[in-house]
């Protein structure tokens, strides 16, 4: 395993440069949620040059559709969803200033190249540990696309959100390297 690094959003190029695959990241600050349906809408806005409901410069997007919050909870269980479904949208979003995405599973070549080109990272969170991850989310509010229910865009304030650098800005790929190391 790599180093343990604490990061605060929004992220800068310098933040990104110090990360390498395998590093454990504890992320704090504001992050945005978004998955399939929200990405479709964000992408359409970006393509036509219209303003986005989020500030994308230095932003972190977490691919998640949380469960509803029980009374006295700020959010329900909230683990990552599979990232490859967002691959078609991600490079263009990095071009526009997005710095990191959080999800599960590997990314395609276009996304990995865009991380190098625009200095970004892909962070892997553990799928299916959604009650545990929700403990690091301190507040949640819907800021766009309420009609999408679980898929609406939420602004989350997180504290020490646990994730691992899976793709860094130098072309490193933890999925590839991890499998190589343990394949028999």
């Amino acid at each position: 395993m790599g180093n343990e690094i604490k990061l605060k959003t929004p992220l800068s190029d310098e933040d990104i440069e110090k990360l390498k695959i395998g590093d454990k990241v504890l992320l704090s600050g504001i992050i945005y949620t978004g998955r399939d349906a929200a990405h479709k809408r964000l992408y359409a806005l970006l393509k036509t040059g219209k303003p986005l409901p989020i500030n994308i410069k230095g932003a972190v997007i977490y691919y998640v559709g949380p469960a509803p919050a029980k009374p006295d909870y700020v959010i329900g269980s909230a683990g990552p969803t599979t990232s490859y479904r967002m691959d078609p949208f991600t490079p263009f979003m990095h071009e526009k200033g997005l710095k990191a995405t959080i999800g599960k599973g590997n990314r395609n070549k276009d996304v990995r190249e865009s991380l190098q080109k625009y200095k970004g990272v892909y962070l892997a969170a553990t799928g299916g540990v959604a009650a545990l991850i929700a403990k690091s989310i301190k507040s949640a509010k819907i800021i766009a696309y309420e009609d999408l229910g679980a898929e609406a865009i939420r602004e989350l304030v997180v504290e020490d959100f646990p994730c691992t650098v899976a793709n860094d800005c130098r072309g490193g790929d933890l999925f590839e390297q991890g499998i190589k190391e343990f394949k028999i």
């Binding site: 469960a67 269980s77 909230a78 683990g79 299916g128 009650a131």
Partner: peptide, 13 residues
């Protein structure tokens, strides 16, 4: 946590 607090193990139920 899920068992003790009666929370969904995974958000995808």
């Amino acid at each position: 946590i899920a068992r003790e607090e009666k929370l969904a193990i995974c958000q995808d139920t």
